[in-house]
């Protein structure tokens, strides 16, 4: 059983302002240079996410949402600026250092699920535990798969599962080792409305139970509205921030 830890946001007056943020982005800039011409896809991004907080990033295609998500998770290098994840500046860490940090406190849910196709559902869920050297996590992984409704399909490969089922396996993998922050990139982008609903319910339920901060990139306004805060982006900049009232207890 997970003990819920309260999420705290600097922007949220309900919570004590001294709680340290799990993610802090300062003056972030990302520029791609190709064939001599530079294209700036993110400009001067400032963002702070506290433990347990849920935050949706919305905006039109090409506004820089996914790029921002990747930079926040240390999946790519910023051109300038700083990203502090769990208090550690990513720009000071080498690839392996960032991987270790992700292993300790970051979870992911991707639009295209990103399950390892040669591993069964159970083995996919076990990977984060195994990477920590935890050899006794099998009952926990099984319990989580049962929780997401896949108790009977643990031995199936991703190709034998539907899109919704694959995303539920991805959710179980993300929460098998409760992360401090979960990055979700269009988690329902490849699912229809009927399939999306249970996935979204599970995402928020697991998030709530584990006290994980959630950063969600989505085009879906209904999904975005379930987050405590909605950050709108356009042309690589944050243009607005809105508190929905759902907050960390959504």
């Amino acid at each position: 059983m997970y003990i819920v830890e309260q999420g705290i946001s600097m922007a949220d007056p309900v919570f004590p302002p001294l709680q340290p943020p799990v993610l802090e982005v300062r003056n972030l800039v990302k520029t791609y240079t190709e064939a001599g011409s530079a294209l700036t896809v993110l400009s001067d991004i400032q963002l702070r996410v506290r433990a347990g907080e849920t935050c949706a990033i919305v905006g039109p295609s090409g506004s820089g949402k996914t790029t921002l998500l990747g930079l926040c998770a240390g999946l790519d290098d910023a051109t300038s600026g700083s990203v502090l994840l769990d208090g550690q500046a990513l720009e000071n860490l080498a690839q392996d250092g960032r991987a270790a940090l992700r292993g300790r406190c970051v979870g992911f849910v991707f639009q295209n699920f990103q399950l390892i196709p040669t591993l069964t559902a159970l083995e996919n869920v076990l990977v984060p535990l195994e990477l920590r050297g935890d050899s006794a996590g099998r009952p926990l992984a099984e319990a989580l798969l049962k929780r997401v409704g896949l108790g009977e399909r643990m031995g199936h490969y991703p190709s034998q599962l539907s899109g919704g089922e694959q995303q539920r396996v991805a959710l179980a993998r993300a929460f098998v080792r409760p992360p401090k922050i979960l990055f979700a990139d269009e988690p329902t982008g490849n699912l229809d409305a009927a399939t999306s609903a249970p996935v979204v319910e599970m995402l928020f339920a697991l998030n709530r139970e584990s006290g994980t901060a959630l950063v969600l990139v989505t085009h879906d306004p209904v999904l975005a509205a379930r987050a405590g805060r909605i950050i709108s982006m356009r042309a690589g900049r944050i243009v607005s921030e809105e508190h929905t009232g759902h907050g960390h207890t959504a």
Binding site: A73, L75, Q95, D96, A99, A100, L101, R102, G103, R104, V106, F108, Q114, L115, I116, P117, T118, V127, P128, L131, R132, R173
Partner: peptide, 16 residues
Amino acid sequence: AQAVAVLLCLGCSTHM
């Protein structure tokens, strides 16, 4: 390549 990228996302070191 995608499987390797996923492993790296999940905290696997390049060495591993």
